[in-house]
Amino acid sequence: MYHIISIRDFERSELDYLLDRAQEFDTGTYRPGMLDDKLVALLFFEPSTRTRMSFATAMARLGGKSISVDSVEASSIVKGETLADTIRVISSYVDAIVLRHPKEGAARLASEFATVPVINAGDGAGQHPSQTLLDLYTIRQSMPVDGIDVGLLGDLRYGRTAHSLALALSLYGVTLHTIAPGGLEMPANIALELRERGMEVVEHENVEEAIRELDVLYVTRIQRERFPDSASYYNVASSYRITTDLLDGVKERLMILHPLPRAGEIDPAVDRTPYARYFEQARNGVPIRMALLHEVMK
Protein backbone atom coordinates (compact mmCIF):
# COMPACT_ATOMS: atom_id res chain seq x y z
CA MET A 1 0.00 0.00 0.00
CA TYR A 2 1.22 3.44 -0.92
CA HIS A 3 0.99 6.18 1.73
CA ILE A 4 2.15 9.76 1.32
CA ILE A 5 3.37 10.84 4.72
CA SER A 6 6.59 12.82 4.63
CA ILE A 7 8.85 14.33 2.03
CA ARG A 8 11.69 12.48 3.78
CA ASP A 9 10.30 9.22 2.44
CA PHE A 10 10.85 10.25 -1.17
CA GLU A 11 13.78 9.88 -3.46
CA ARG A 12 14.29 12.38 -6.18
CA SER A 13 13.08 10.03 -8.92
CA GLU A 14 9.81 9.51 -7.05
CA LEU A 15 9.27 13.25 -6.69
CA ASP A 16 10.01 13.78 -10.38
CA TYR A 17 7.59 11.03 -11.29
CA LEU A 18 4.78 12.64 -9.28
CA LEU A 19 5.56 16.04 -10.77
CA ASP A 20 5.40 14.53 -14.27
CA ARG A 21 2.07 12.95 -13.48
CA ALA A 22 0.76 16.27 -12.16
CA GLN A 23 1.77 17.88 -15.41
CA GLU A 24 -0.25 15.34 -17.36
CA PHE A 25 -3.28 16.13 -15.24
CA ASP A 26 -2.60 19.82 -15.61
CA THR A 27 -2.49 19.70 -19.38
CA GLY A 28 -5.56 17.53 -19.59
CA THR A 29 -3.91 14.39 -20.93
CA TYR A 30 -5.86 11.95 -18.80
CA ARG A 31 -9.09 9.99 -18.86
CA PRO A 32 -11.67 12.03 -16.87
CA GLY A 33 -13.37 9.14 -15.07
CA MET A 34 -10.17 7.56 -13.78
CA LEU A 35 -11.34 7.30 -10.18
CA ASP A 36 -15.07 7.09 -10.83
CA ASP A 37 -15.62 4.12 -8.54
CA LYS A 38 -13.52 5.57 -5.72
CA LEU A 39 -14.38 7.34 -2.50
CA VAL A 40 -11.97 9.32 -0.36
CA ALA A 41 -12.45 10.58 3.22
CA LEU A 42 -11.14 14.09 3.84
CA LEU A 43 -10.61 13.91 7.57
CA PHE A 44 -9.69 17.31 8.92
CA PHE A 45 -9.11 17.69 12.64
CA GLU A 46 -7.87 21.23 12.10
CA PRO A 47 -9.44 23.97 10.04
CA SER A 48 -8.20 24.30 6.48
CA THR A 49 -10.18 25.62 3.58
CA ARG A 50 -7.66 25.62 0.80
CA THR A 51 -6.10 22.21 1.27
CA ARG A 52 -9.44 20.51 1.88
CA MET A 53 -11.09 22.17 -1.12
CA SER A 54 -8.25 21.41 -3.44
CA PHE A 55 -8.30 17.72 -2.48
CA ALA A 56 -12.09 17.68 -3.02
CA THR A 57 -11.67 19.44 -6.36
CA ALA A 58 -8.94 17.05 -7.44
CA MET A 59 -11.08 14.05 -6.52
CA ALA A 60 -14.11 15.42 -8.37
CA ARG A 61 -12.04 16.14 -11.47
CA LEU A 62 -10.97 12.51 -11.53
CA GLY A 63 -14.60 11.43 -11.35
CA GLY A 64 -14.34 10.21 -7.76
CA LYS A 65 -16.32 11.20 -4.72
CA SER A 66 -15.25 12.49 -1.37
CA ILE A 67 -16.79 12.64 2.03
CA SER A 68 -15.52 15.58 3.92
CA VAL A 69 -15.31 15.74 7.65
CA ASP A 70 -14.40 19.16 8.99
CA SER A 71 -12.69 19.98 12.23
CA VAL A 72 -15.89 20.45 14.23
CA GLU A 73 -17.49 17.23 12.99
CA ALA A 74 -14.22 15.37 13.36
CA SER A 75 -13.91 16.23 17.00
CA SER A 76 -17.48 15.16 17.70
CA ILE A 77 -17.10 11.88 15.80
CA VAL A 78 -14.17 10.87 17.89
CA LYS A 79 -15.30 11.98 21.35
CA GLY A 80 -12.35 10.60 23.20
CA GLU A 81 -11.74 7.86 20.66
CA THR A 82 -8.15 7.40 19.64
CA LEU A 83 -7.07 8.42 16.16
CA ALA A 84 -6.00 4.80 15.69
CA ASP A 85 -9.59 3.58 16.19
CA THR A 86 -11.09 6.35 14.05
CA ILE A 87 -8.75 5.42 11.24
CA ARG A 88 -9.52 1.71 11.51
CA VAL A 89 -13.23 2.42 11.21
CA ILE A 90 -13.05 4.99 8.43
CA SER A 91 -10.69 2.70 6.51
CA SER A 92 -13.58 0.30 6.17
CA TYR A 93 -15.78 2.93 4.49
CA VAL A 94 -13.49 4.45 1.87
CA ASP A 95 -10.69 3.82 -0.61
CA ALA A 96 -8.24 6.38 0.80
CA ILE A 97 -7.94 8.85 3.67
CA VAL A 98 -6.62 12.40 3.50
CA LEU A 99 -5.72 13.50 7.01
CA ARG A 100 -5.05 16.87 8.61
CA HIS A 101 -4.28 16.65 12.31
CA PRO A 102 -2.76 18.95 14.95
CA LYS A 103 -0.27 16.40 16.28
CA GLU A 104 3.06 15.75 14.63
CA GLY A 105 3.40 12.20 13.44
CA ALA A 106 -0.39 11.70 13.28
CA ALA A 107 -0.26 10.72 9.63
CA ARG A 108 2.48 8.16 10.24
CA LEU A 109 0.40 6.67 13.01
CA ALA A 110 -2.70 6.65 10.80
CA SER A 111 -0.80 4.78 8.09
CA GLU A 112 -0.01 2.05 10.61
CA PHE A 113 -3.67 1.47 11.45
CA ALA A 114 -5.28 2.16 8.08
CA THR A 115 -6.21 -0.59 5.69
CA VAL A 116 -6.34 1.98 2.86
CA PRO A 117 -3.74 4.51 1.72
CA VAL A 118 -3.25 7.65 3.83
CA ILE A 119 -2.23 11.03 2.44
CA ASN A 120 -0.87 13.51 4.96
CA ALA A 121 -2.50 16.91 4.50
CA GLY A 122 -0.50 18.47 7.32
CA ASP A 123 0.28 17.20 10.80
CA GLY A 124 0.81 19.99 13.29
CA ALA A 125 4.19 21.62 12.89
CA GLY A 126 5.28 18.50 11.01
CA GLN A 127 4.96 17.53 7.39
CA HIS A 128 2.71 18.70 4.57
CA PRO A 129 4.05 16.85 1.53
CA SER A 130 1.40 17.88 -1.00
CA GLN A 131 2.29 21.52 -0.32
CA THR A 132 5.95 20.80 -0.98
CA LEU A 133 5.13 19.00 -4.19
CA LEU A 134 3.06 21.89 -5.47
CA ASP A 135 5.85 24.30 -4.55
CA LEU A 136 8.33 22.21 -6.53
CA TYR A 137 5.88 21.91 -9.36
CA THR A 138 5.44 25.68 -9.54
CA ILE A 139 9.19 26.23 -9.67
CA ARG A 140 9.62 23.54 -12.30
CA GLN A 141 7.03 25.17 -14.53
CA SER A 142 9.37 28.13 -14.95
CA MET A 143 12.87 26.70 -14.69
CA PRO A 144 14.75 23.48 -14.07
CA VAL A 145 15.08 23.07 -10.31
CA ASP A 146 18.67 21.83 -10.47
CA GLY A 147 21.30 24.15 -9.08
CA ILE A 148 19.09 27.22 -8.61
CA ASP A 149 19.28 29.68 -5.69
CA VAL A 150 16.24 29.60 -3.45
CA GLY A 151 15.63 32.03 -0.61
CA LEU A 152 13.41 31.10 2.33
CA LEU A 153 12.06 34.12 4.13
CA GLY A 154 10.04 34.38 7.30
CA ASP A 155 9.41 32.03 10.18
CA LEU A 156 11.92 29.29 9.50
CA ARG A 157 11.72 27.99 13.01
CA TYR A 158 8.14 26.76 13.16
CA GLY A 159 7.25 26.95 9.47
CA ARG A 160 6.71 23.39 8.33
CA THR A 161 6.32 24.32 4.66
CA ALA A 162 9.79 25.86 4.69
CA HIS A 163 11.37 22.78 6.27
CA SER A 164 9.90 20.25 3.97
CA LEU A 165 10.52 22.38 0.88
CA ALA A 166 14.16 22.74 1.93
CA LEU A 167 14.44 18.97 2.36
CA ALA A 168 13.02 18.38 -1.10
CA LEU A 169 15.25 21.03 -2.67
CA SER A 170 18.30 19.36 -1.15
CA LEU A 171 17.74 16.56 -3.68
CA TYR A 172 18.19 19.04 -6.54
CA GLY A 173 21.56 20.61 -5.79
CA VAL A 174 19.87 23.86 -4.84
CA THR A 175 21.69 26.54 -2.83
CA LEU A 176 19.49 27.62 0.03
CA HIS A 177 19.47 31.17 1.36
CA THR A 178 17.78 31.62 4.70
CA ILE A 179 16.45 34.97 5.86
CA ALA A 180 14.71 34.89 9.23
CA PRO A 181 14.02 37.30 12.06
CA GLY A 182 15.97 36.76 15.28
CA GLY A 183 14.45 33.89 17.24
CA LEU A 184 12.73 32.44 14.18
CA GLU A 185 15.87 31.07 12.51
CA MET A 186 15.91 27.58 11.08
CA PRO A 187 16.49 25.02 13.87
CA ALA A 188 20.11 23.85 13.99
CA ASN A 189 19.21 20.20 13.52
CA ILE A 190 17.34 20.94 10.30
CA ALA A 191 20.17 23.06 8.94
CA LEU A 192 22.51 20.20 9.88
CA GLU A 193 20.33 17.65 8.12
CA LEU A 194 20.27 19.80 4.98
CA ARG A 195 24.05 20.12 5.02
CA GLU A 196 24.40 16.39 5.56
CA ARG A 197 22.30 15.96 2.45
CA GLY A 198 24.94 18.01 0.63
CA MET A 199 23.05 21.27 0.51
CA GLU A 200 24.77 24.63 0.68
CA VAL A 201 22.91 26.75 3.21
CA VAL A 202 23.71 30.47 3.38
CA GLU A 203 22.27 32.63 6.14
CA HIS A 204 21.43 36.27 5.48
CA GLU A 205 20.66 39.17 7.77
CA ASN A 206 18.07 40.74 5.53
CA VAL A 207 16.23 40.40 2.24
CA GLU A 208 18.11 43.19 0.45
CA GLU A 209 21.36 41.34 0.91
CA ALA A 210 20.11 38.16 -0.76
CA ILE A 211 17.39 39.00 -3.21
CA ARG A 212 19.52 39.76 -6.28
CA GLU A 213 21.09 36.31 -6.13
CA LEU A 214 17.81 34.47 -6.03
CA ASP A 215 15.84 32.54 -8.62
CA VAL A 216 13.05 31.84 -6.15
CA LEU A 217 12.02 33.75 -3.05
CA TYR A 218 9.74 31.67 -0.88
CA VAL A 219 7.96 33.83 1.66
CA THR A 220 6.23 32.30 4.67
CA ARG A 221 3.94 33.69 7.27
CA ILE A 222 5.30 35.35 10.38
CA GLN A 223 2.71 34.64 13.02
CA ARG A 224 1.82 37.18 15.62
CA GLU A 225 1.56 34.57 18.35
CA ARG A 226 5.34 33.99 18.14
CA PHE A 227 5.96 37.45 19.57
CA PRO A 228 5.57 38.73 23.13
CA ASP A 229 3.59 41.81 22.08
CA SER A 230 2.16 43.35 18.96
CA ALA A 231 4.73 46.14 18.87
CA SER A 232 7.61 43.71 18.45
CA TYR A 233 5.56 41.73 15.93
CA TYR A 234 4.88 44.80 13.76
CA ASN A 235 8.46 45.83 14.06
CA VAL A 236 9.75 42.51 12.72
CA ALA A 237 6.93 42.01 10.23
CA SER A 238 7.50 45.38 8.61
CA SER A 239 11.23 44.86 8.25
CA TYR A 240 10.63 41.54 6.46
CA ARG A 241 7.86 42.79 4.19
CA ILE A 242 8.33 42.40 0.44
CA THR A 243 7.66 45.63 -1.41
CA THR A 244 8.21 46.69 -5.01
CA ASP A 245 11.23 48.80 -3.93
CA LEU A 246 13.05 45.62 -3.01
CA LEU A 247 12.68 44.25 -6.50
CA ASP A 248 15.09 46.64 -8.18
CA GLY A 249 17.85 44.76 -9.94
CA VAL A 250 16.57 41.25 -9.20
CA LYS A 251 17.01 38.43 -11.72
CA GLU A 252 14.51 38.54 -14.51
CA ARG A 253 13.30 35.03 -13.77
CA LEU A 254 12.89 35.60 -10.02
CA MET A 255 9.68 34.05 -8.77
CA ILE A 256 8.09 35.00 -5.49
CA LEU A 257 6.11 32.19 -3.88
CA HIS A 258 3.99 32.04 -0.73
CA PRO A 259 1.97 29.09 0.59
CA LEU A 260 -0.94 31.46 1.37
CA PRO A 261 -2.89 32.74 3.15
CA ARG A 262 -0.63 35.75 3.53
CA ALA A 263 -0.89 38.27 6.30
CA GLY A 264 1.19 41.36 5.58
CA GLU A 265 4.33 39.66 4.28
CA ILE A 266 3.89 40.73 0.68
CA ASP A 267 2.67 44.17 -0.32
CA PRO A 268 -0.32 43.78 -2.70
CA ALA A 269 1.49 46.09 -5.14
CA VAL A 270 3.91 43.18 -5.73
CA ASP A 271 0.97 41.17 -7.11
CA ARG A 272 1.13 43.20 -10.31
CA THR A 273 4.79 42.46 -10.99
CA PRO A 274 5.82 39.48 -13.13
CA TYR A 275 7.63 38.04 -10.12
CA ALA A 276 4.46 37.35 -8.16
CA ARG A 277 3.58 33.70 -8.70
CA TYR A 278 1.72 32.74 -5.54
CA PHE A 279 -1.74 32.58 -7.05
CA GLU A 280 -0.49 30.31 -9.79
CA GLN A 281 1.16 28.26 -7.05
CA ALA A 282 -2.17 27.90 -5.22
CA ARG A 283 -3.86 26.79 -8.42
CA ASN A 284 -1.24 24.05 -8.81
CA GLY A 285 -2.61 22.41 -5.69
CA VAL A 286 -5.24 20.72 -7.83
CA PRO A 287 -3.08 18.87 -10.39
CA ILE A 288 -0.65 17.84 -7.66
CA ARG A 289 -3.45 16.42 -5.53
CA MET A 290 -4.94 14.72 -8.57
CA ALA A 291 -1.59 13.02 -9.10
CA LEU A 292 -1.40 11.95 -5.44
CA LEU A 293 -4.98 10.67 -5.23
CA HIS A 294 -4.61 8.80 -8.48
CA GLU A 295 -1.28 7.33 -7.46
CA VAL A 296 -2.53 5.87 -4.20
CA MET A 297 -5.83 4.54 -5.57
CA LYS A 298 -5.05 3.46 -9.14
Binding site: S6, A84, E104, G105, N189
Partner: peptide
Protein backbone atom coordinates in the same frame (compact mmCIF):
# COMPACT_ATOMS: atom_id res chain seq x y z
CA UNK B 1 3.24 18.00 20.02
CA UNK B 2 4.32 14.47 19.09
CA UNK B 3 1.54 11.94 18.55
CA UNK B 4 3.43 9.43 20.72
CA UNK B 5 2.79 11.71 23.73
CA UNK B 6 -0.96 11.17 23.52
CA UNK B 7 -3.22 8.29 24.46
CA UNK B 8 -2.74 6.64 21.07
CA UNK B 9 -1.83 2.94 21.21
CA UNK B 10 1.72 3.35 19.89
CA UNK B 11 5.10 3.25 21.53
CA UNK B 12 7.64 5.97 20.96
CA UNK B 13 10.01 4.89 18.21
CA UNK B 14 13.43 6.33 17.54
CA UNK B 15 15.99 5.44 14.96
CA UNK B 16 19.50 5.61 16.37
CA UNK B 17 21.74 7.90 14.32
CA UNK B 18 25.30 9.11 14.96
CA UNK B 19 23.95 12.55 15.81
CA UNK B 20 21.28 11.31 18.20
CA UNK B 21 17.88 9.64 18.43
CA UNK B 22 15.46 10.58 15.66
CA UNK B 23 11.72 10.26 16.41
CA UNK B 24 10.16 8.33 13.54
CA UNK B 25 6.83 10.05 14.14
CA UNK B 26 7.63 13.74 14.52
CA UNK B 27 11.30 13.91 13.37
Amino acid sequence: GCITNTNEPVASTFEVLDKGLHCLYCD
